[in-house]
Design a protein around this nucleic acid. Structure first.
Length: 850
RNA sequence: GGAUGUUUAGCUCAGCUGGGAGAGCAUCUGUUUGACGUACAGAAGGUCACAGGUUCGAGCCCUGUAGCAUCCACCA
């Protein structure tokens, strides 16, 4: 027998290991249709957070649902080497031991990094197990493993040969702390307070001067021109002359270009081609010199004169002071402006001219826009994807790191020859590029590289394209879009059919969870306290697709209470079976109405739940199941079944027990994708069952003969009215009342025992002709009178209330029906329904008024 | 500047192809009815942001306005 209380710890124990050992998570049954997902590989940098828990639960629900639906489900496990993030963590650890990566050298450092990876992969495996994820570990991959390296090299080489990968000197975002280049999406712009410095630039050979404003005086050593707008009347006469750079007294040509905004600042802009992407673009247009005044570590270089070797901010301060002394400082304004920070280190990135590898995006993006068949859910994210693709810049893919796929380019310094090769080149005249590739370069191949591509493996043939990819909206740019264009380029197919996008999880106040705020929630703590099933249920229900959610402990508790409800309903069902239970077919046609009623309601529930499961709307699907479990099953039918079991012969009793077991089993299977552990526990307690709920098939709605169940609905309403009557009249819930039913419908006799019990009737008469002074309640197929010693005043009040209600309803109906537009244009069923209601209300009113 | 989302009960949020406003929590009243007090029974609580429009009918569709949030692009 089940325990009185649902104990999540006991329920969770051992199940995951069993499932795994039995091979339920392993794909490969070729007699079934395949269904494929690949997990978004988590970074091997630390613990998984609630966002991961959410993301993986959605996938696990899908995997388990599809398994129950009879698919050969492959949900491929894997992790990401996360180049920058991991290297930063490993270096940090080394630093705490007083070692730098250069002390160890590339090889020594990589050894440490792999040790780190093993440790954290182990953590992640444990967390996946806690979450109950039905991941196929037999095919687990790592973005830095050998097979994926082959895929990476193949892709690099192919794109290079096609001219879609090139090496060039361009402005890139440089992280001076981690000492590596970044791609545009790795830069986060924040509103930082800063200063706007206004400097006097003297015009050469004249007494005139103009004012240039800048936020970055230290870059003035790299200036090669000052630009104004050609139609700016203030400066027109000066165009073509030289002005004097107040930082170093060098002459700068005053040039004109439409790019300059007349309204902004002073309308005169200094141009620093080597440290600003826009200025770089101007320098290309006018074929200007590009002078770097900073090194990659954000220290001033020889072009900064006496400031050489100084930090960029220190130089700024000193230089402004010097210009002020020279009398060329006009004013300093406090402003708030957008400053780019490194996604990983958080430090201010330095746009710098540098030689890096790039993916030429335009052709790939155009192909993706034209050929992608990926269906985003919700649909609106398709826009997000397309808009980004339409405006994408070339992708800087080289990183000055060691942890990653090393760029397969080899240089001969003597001849200047460059060879890109999929296999290592051992010629001593050549040396390999020192840099590695952006992590996302390898993640972008994940849906197919994990299946053995570029080899035409059987897995690749069977499981590609994937059916579904699940991820949060914040990595559409980083990952989803890159998978799409790489997949189209290399496999000629979209990587997955659908892409389900979910939101981000926030704290209870709606703030992003972050380390600095210290408001993060460790899923493991939640699991320890409330159980993983409750956490999973909370994460995947009660929210709309694509929306952010807030972590609310009360909601986790509510989830846990719901599971406890199911637990106890199961306990009741199992306890009521007794020794003499035998499993048998349910004969719907011969069942009593209350039993038929609940089976019909279950049928509708199965239809609704399945419908929304198929649409990937797990939140809406769960709400249909929830309502059925709570209202229809537990609050209504379960109570009725107690009467059914008392008042029937042995043969029928066994039918009822079978109904109970059948409903319970269906509930358990439908809740299984959300709550795998408790459902397995309850499933194994059923009188007959397979080895595991994972081997079950998903419920299907049955085809029952149509039956009229209006009087069952009436009965439930009667019970509620009686209860309500007692509360409003301050009677005890079990107060005995005289209840009379006036009806010509014989089937109410069948419902009499149920009514008797739940109204605690002292006396219950059913007749087609009742005379009573009691308070009257009118239903579809019957009227109910409640008699007690309540004053006639109160009875009159109740009557008056009813009359008013019916009158207003009649008004409403008549108004609608007298509207020719409604009668003519609304669907026939709606009009008919209104007519029926009107008649019904009129009859009720007539009875009350007499 | 562009785009997207959002505004519904005290709070957090659902709400299907347009057809009589829902849940959880909180509140109030009551309850040893043999599954469950992690519960049960009942109650109260809403001008669905605002203004127009379309429609027989709008929380839902269209237009506009306002607040909040996010993303993209940015001006030196």
């Amino acid at each position: 027998m089940l325990d009185k209380r649902y104990d999540h710890k006991k329920v969770e124990e051992g199940k995951y290991e069993t499932w795994k050992k039995k091979g339920y998570f392993t794909a490969g049954d070729t007699s079934k249709q395949a269904f494929t997902m690949v997990i978004p590989p988590p970074n091997v940098t630390g613990k998984l957070h609630l966002g991961h828990a959410w993301n993986t639960t959605i996938q696990d629900i899908t995997a388990r649902y599809k398994k129950l639906k009879g698919y050969d489900v492959l949900w491929l496990a894997g992790m990401d080497h996360a180049g920058i993030a991991t290297q930063a963590k490993v270096e940090q650890k080394l630093r705490s031991e007083g070692i730098s990566r250069y002390d160890l050298g590339r090889e020594g450092f990589l050894k440490k990094a792999w040790e780190w990876k093993e440790e954290y992969a182990d953590n992640i495996h444990k967390q996946w197990a806690k979450m109950g994820l039905a991941l196929d570990y037999s095919r687990e991959r790592f973005t830095l493993d050998e097979g994926l390296n082959k895929a990476v090299n193949h892709v690099f080489k192919t794109l290079y040969d096609k001219g879609l990968i090139y090496r060039g000197e361009r402005i890139i975002n440089y992280d001076p702390e981690l000492k590596t280049a970044l791609s545009n999406v790795e830069v986060i712009y924040e509103n930082d307070p800063g200063k706007f410095y206004y400097f006097k630039y003297k015009v050469e050979g004249s007494n005139e001067f103009l004012v240039v404003a800048t936020t970055r005086p230290e870059t003035m050593f790299g200036d090669t021109a000052v630009f104004v707008n050609p139609s700016d009347e203030r400066y027109k006469h000066l165009i073509g002359k030289n002005v004097i750079n107040p930082a170093n007294n060098e002459p700068l040509p005053l040039m004109a270009d439409e790019y300059v905004d007349i309204e902004f600042g002073t309308g005169a802009m200094k141009c620093t081609p080597a440290h600003d992407p826009n200025d770089f673009a101007l320098s290309e247009k006018y074929n200007m010199k590009r002078i770097k005044c900073m090194d990659l570590d954000a220290k001033m270089n020889e072009n900064a004169g006496i400031y050489q070797g100084m930090d960029r901010y220190e130089c700024r301060e000193k230089l402004v002071e010097q210009i002020r002394k020279d009398g060329n400082l006009i004013k300093i304004e406090d402003i708030v402006h957008q400053v780019g920070h490194s996604e990983r280190s958080g430090c201010v990135v330095e746009p710098t001219l540098s030689k890096q590898w790039f993916v030429k995006m335009r052709p790939l993006a155009e192909q993706a826009l034209k050929k992608s068949t990926v269906e985003f859910v919700p649909e609106r994210f398709n826009h997000t994807f397309r808009q980004w693709m339409e405006n994408v810049d070339d992708w800087c893919i080289s990183r000055q790191l060691w942890w990653g796929h090393r760029i397969p380019a080899y240089y001969n310094d003597e001849t200047g020859e460059v060879i890109v090769s999929e296999t290592p080149i051992n010629d001593p005249h050549f040396h390999q590029d020192e840099d590695v590739l952006d992590t996302w370069f390898s993640s972008a191949l994940w849906p197919f590289s994990t299946l053995g591509w570029p080899e035409e493996t059987s897995d690749f043939k069977r499981y590609f394209p994937n059916d579904l990819l699940v991820t949060a909206y914040d990595i559409i740019f980083f990952w989803v879009s890159r998978m799409i264009f790489d997949s189209l380029e290399f496999t000629k197919k979209s990587p997955f059919k659908k892409c389900l996008i979910h939101g981000l999880i926030r704290d209870s106040q709606g703030r992003k969870m972050s380390k600095t705020l210290g408001n993060g929630i460790d899923p493991i703590d939640v699991i320890d306290k409330y159980g993983v099933d409750a956490l999973r249920y909370f994460l995947t229900t009660g929210s709309a697709p694509g929306q952010d959610i807030r972590y609310m402990e009360e909601k986790v508790i509510a989830s846990s209470n719901y599971l406890n409800k199911i637990w106890n309903s199961a306990r009741y069902v199992l306890e009521s079976l007794g020794e003499d239970f035998t499993s048998e077919e349910i004969n719907f046609d011969k069942l009593h109405k209350v039993e038929q009623d609940i089976l019909v309601k279950l049928n509708n529930t199965i239809k609704n739940v399945t419908n929304y499961m198929d649409k990937l709307d797990y939140s809406l699907a769960s709400s249909y199941l929830y309502n059925f479990v709570y209202d229809d099953f537990c609050s209504s039918y379960l109570e009725m079944s107690k009467v059914s079991l008392l008042n029937s012969d042995e043969k029928y009793r066994n039918q009822i027990k079978n109904v109970l077991v059948y409903i319970l089993k269906n509930i358990i299977i439908m809740i299984h994708p959300y709550a795998p552990f408790i459902s397995e526990e309850l499933y194994l307690a059923l009188p007959s069952h397979k080895e595991s709920i994972m081997l079950e098939t998903y419920p299907e709605a049955k085809k029952y003969a149509k039956v009229d169940l209006v009087n069952v609905t009436d009965m439930y309403k009667m019970i509620q009215d009686v209860r309500n009557y007692k509360v409003t009249n301050k009677l005890a819930p079990n107060a005995k009342l005289i209840i009379k039913l006036e009806t010509s419908d014989d089937s109410f006799n069948e419902l009499k025992p149920y009514l008797e019990r739940f109204s605690f009737a002292k006396e219950l008469t059913i007749s087609n002709n009742i005379s009573s002074s009691g308070i009257k309640y009118i239903y579809k197929n019957a009227s109910m009178f409640i008699e007690d010693d309540i004053s006639s005043e109160e009875k009159e009040a109740k009557k008056a209330k009813d009359i008013a209600l019916y009158k207003s309803e009649i008004d409403r109906c008549e108004k609608m029906l007298s509207n020719p537009n409604f009668v003519n244009k609304a669907p026939k069923e709606k009009v008919e329904a209104e007519r029926n209601k009107l008649e019904d209300y009129k009859a009720k009113l007539k009875e009350l008024i007499g």
